[in-house]
Amino acid sequence: MKVIITGASGFVGQNLSEYLVRNDISIQSLSLRKEWNMDNNADTIIHLAGKAHDTENISADDEYFKVNTELTKKLFDEFLRSDIKDFIYFSSVKATADSVEGILDEEHVPNPKTPYGKSKLLAEQYLVSKDLPKSKRLFIIRPCMIHGTGNKGNLNLLYKIVKKGIPWPLAAFENKRSFLSIDNLNFLILHVLKDKKIQSGIYNFADDDFISTNQLIQIISSVSKKKSRLWYVPTRFIDLVAKIGDKMKLPLNSERLKKLTESYSVSNKKIKKALGINRLPISAEGGLAKTIKSFQVK
């Protein structure tokens, strides 16, 4: 089996490519930054390339639509003209909801608020609007927050806070969040590639269990062999500090505070039902612990 991957140099692309190669799948990287031609002998295209969500809100809106929407359209049109059978598009849960009440599933009516989410949704809408030949499959994957060995971002920020013995001042925020271990992502993609009985559609990718930020702090503390220090500072005071951070470009701003404390629970029942499984290989806690341990390697 030969698979074309766009965005293969990114965190997900590198990990997925290595995993698929270990499972006897041939990988071809396709860069969309210059003129490109698609290998018509490939079996599948996995479209990972895109402009990620900018938490500091300094990117121009049109950049998201140029990369996430228009490039996806062009690639999908080429796919439809080719003999390639499967197209796997990595969208985002942010294409359907920026905040979640209850548990997010694939039946949620999309209503993104950010240029990032809107650009992803427009790409989705274009893909499903095209006539798909019966011989082809289209998968729109909506992952939640992806993490894994070597991955940076908010998890690394939390790790540094705990390692230094700094108290966690956001313990008063009660939340439940979904994460996605890169190992579970790789597992799911491999099975989608190999199981031709799985039908086209939109699928959420998330770990099985929901984790609160306080639980996450405790996981980090356990891995780091540090005592967890949870401070229950009033939420109103923290909100005020974040607003000041917006204006003064401080590490804690409203966007980052939201990411750290909001509830965002995502259902993965649809993809597990399609695969005929009850649980993913790695638990949410186990996957997070593995990622945190990777931060300790110098």
Rank of each mutant, 00 (worst) to 15 (best):
W36A: 13
S267D: 12
N268L: 11
L288H: 01
I217W: 05
V100F: 05
K120Q: 10
K2L: 10
F187M: 04
P110N: 08
D98L: 09
M38H: 05
W168G: 01
N253P: 10
T213W: 02
A171R: 04
K194C: 10
N57I: 01
E174L: 02
I25L: 14
H47S: 07
A289W: 00
L188R: 01
V93I: 10
A171V: 00
L190G: 09
V109F: 03
V21L: 00
W231V: 14
L260K: 05
D208F: 13
Y19N: 06
V192K: 04
S181A: 12
P169A: 02
E78P: 00
N186Y: 03
Y159L: 04
H108Q: 14
K66M: 12
Y116G: 06
Q14S: 09
E124A: 10
T55A: 09
K120R: 13
R236E: 11
K74Q: 12
E35N: 12
N57V: 07
S224Y: 03
Y203Q: 04
S129I: 04
S129E: 08
E285Y: 13
L104H: 00
T69I: 04
L122Y: 07
S283Q: 02
A206C: 10
L185V: 07
Q215K: 09
H108T: 15
T6F: 04
I217K: 00
S135I: 13
I238P: 15
A95D: 12
K290C: 07
I4Y: 06
Y64M: 07
A171E: 02
D208M: 12
I282T: 06
K273G: 10
K163N: 07
F11D: 03
D24N: 12
F187V: 14
Q14T: 14
S200P: 08
K258E: 10
K163L: 12
I182A: 03
S31A: 02
I189N: 06
F237R: 10
K249V: 15
R256C: 02
I166C: 06
P110D: 02
T55V: 13
F76V: 07
Q215P: 09
